[in-house]
Nucleic acid binder design. Structure first.
Lengths: 233, 233
DNA sequence: TAAACGCATTGACAGTTATCAATTACCTCC
DNA sequence: GGAGGTAATTGATAACTGTCAATGCGTTTA
């Protein structure tokens, strides 16, 4: 099964028993902030946003959840972020109770989840590096690079097409501004600035063609470069 | 044993066998970036910084490690951050090999580590919220609040003294600037601005008296407020 | 003790971003 | 096809931050 590829056959059979596929339309809230959801999920298709809801009703996006990612909490205790569907999403859900019981029985699964979590933590720290860039255009470049690295094998998000790299921006400019800690207008200007420099070309607001990967990496701070061994230059 | 309080007695006995106390002077590099350290550690005393070293030799601080925190990687694979002592530190080290073996035998320990990691992830996302603030003074206020919440019970870092809250800033202005994604001068100005507003008073550069906790929380974005139930107002 | 040094703070100006306003592009619905 | 609505872009100005320079403060060193 996709989220658990690499695990032993009998374990996967057990997991399939407690797994339920679900589909939600765009703009659905899958998990409210503070809610003690009774499952965690794996994304097969679609994009979701992790969001902190403020007291005044506004929200701050703290991350995206895309194909191949997992979301939700393994243990009880209210979720510290809300999970909202950006597009229609189809997911696999695993009830927490049975899953926890399975973990208790299977050191293999326990260990597997531990490593997933450590990878998550590393990725979150990588993202922090992007956010620490002072200029918006640098953070935007960082976002594009992170997208490439993380979803390099998700064909409809990142596609290498006869020498040119095409990236699908999975969220609106408004959400992107929240994610990057700035405003819509600044995001727009940053796109324009990168385009003017000949680094990217915005075919549509949601479809970016990267014309100069090397300079995009430089713009992003250069420090993510060593993560891009799999990315052709 | 401190880092594992709550675990069963026999398990703790096993852990004590593979534990070694160490002390390092200030400005020591405990773990280089990319190094596959053979242990992970628990901090008993002192402050360390997590740092990403750039190709040009400059560093970007991505977090602090203080009393009660753990650091280093549970599994093999080069560390993605360097760990450097800011002050003299005394730590407990656990060799990775034996520890991993113990985890494989003990679901209790495995589960314990899983929960520690999830807490770490939540804290990292909290910190991201701070970094997403646009103004430096807001990020600085956020830093102070996070410090209070995280180390409320570490007496020499956060002390509530007959109605006034005293916070020890554990790092230099220069390191603080890196941590907040800005420059030394801006940090200095942010301290001055908060002081001018009557929110804080800088007794020394390393000793801050908070005069108006409520307004400090507001300045920090207000959204961390619900984490501060334990903090008197 | 004086000089030298590192660190923090403050000032002046240039560069970047936030904010408000206006315009354009695009999609939906009639 | 045209009207209305939403999202994206662009422009102008104020607010904030980065940079360079100078000053103050405390500690170390000769």
């Amino acid at each position: 099964m996709e989220p658990f590829s690499g695990l032993s056959q009998p374990l996967i059979a057990e997991l399939e028993k407690i797994c339920a596929p679900m589909t939600y339309p765009a703009e659905t809230t899958l998990i409210e902030m503070g809610e003690t959801s009774d499952y965690f999920g794996y994304v097969r298709r679609g994009i979701m946003r992790m969001q902190r809801i403020h007291l005044d009703g506004t929200g701050q996006i703290v991350g995206l959840v895309a194909e191949g990612d997992v979301f939700g909490s393994l243990f009880e205790g209210g979720s510290k972020v809300a999970i909202e569907a950006v597009t229609e999403v189809s997911i696999l859900t695993f009830k927490r109770g049975p899953f926890e019981a399975l973990m208790a029985r299977s050191a293999e699964l326990d260990h597997f989840m531990l490593q997933k979590l450590m990878a998550d933590l590393d990725r979150t720290r990588d993202w922090m590096l992007v956010l620490l860039n002072r200029k918006v255009s640098e953070r935007l470049a960082g976002f594009l690079v992170v997208l490439c690295i993380r979803y390099a094998n998700v064909d409809h998000l990142v596609r290498w097409d006869n020498g040119s790299l095409e990236i699908k921006v999975p969220i609106s400019r408004c959400d992107l501004a929240s994610l990057l800690g700035t405003r819509v207008e600044s995001v727009s200007r940053a796109f324009s600035a990168l385009a003017k420099k000949g680094i990217i070309h915005t075919k549509t607001p949601y479809l970016i063609e990267v014309q100069d990967v090397r300079r995009l990496l430089e713009e992003a701070g250069g420090e993510l470069t060593n993560r891009v061994t799999g990315l052709r230059t």
